[in-house]
Amino acid sequence: MTIEIRGRCVVPGYAEGEALVSHETISGWGGIDPATGTIIERRHELFGVCFTGKVLVFPGAKGSSGWSGFFQSTRLLGTAPLAMVFTTMTTKAALGAVVTRVPAMSEFDHDPTEVVNTGDWVVVAADQGLLTVTPSRGSARR
């Protein structure tokens, strides 16, 4: 069983991989460590979790304007996520996706943080504006 949702292309490209879903917005500066590709905000639901090589699904960016620079550093240090899928468009998230140079999508017909669960297999076809989700075995559907 797969689920398809439609959104807008933010950064063109194609990627497929395992999803890492955050239901909370993510900070760049003070929120992630580019050297290790992990979330470091103490009160965050993904505190200590690594996003490298994952399709990062999140509601949007928050906090400092260092957001894009920190995600650009994940590219330069080899710890970047595989793709970015986010609900709310902001300048931080848009520029962050551009300079991370990974396929990215936003503005979906269904909220991806509700549709996708961590561990699901996600195909990001940004040029076509199509996100295809294959739930992982045992993933709890809501």
């Binding site: 894009s68 902001t90 300048t91 520029l95 962050g96 551009v98 300079v99």
Partner: peptide, 8 residues
């Protein structure tokens, strides 16, 4: 202004 970044 928007909240711009290093590159923009």
């Amino acid at each position: 202004t928007n909240c711009e970044g290093t590159a923009s």
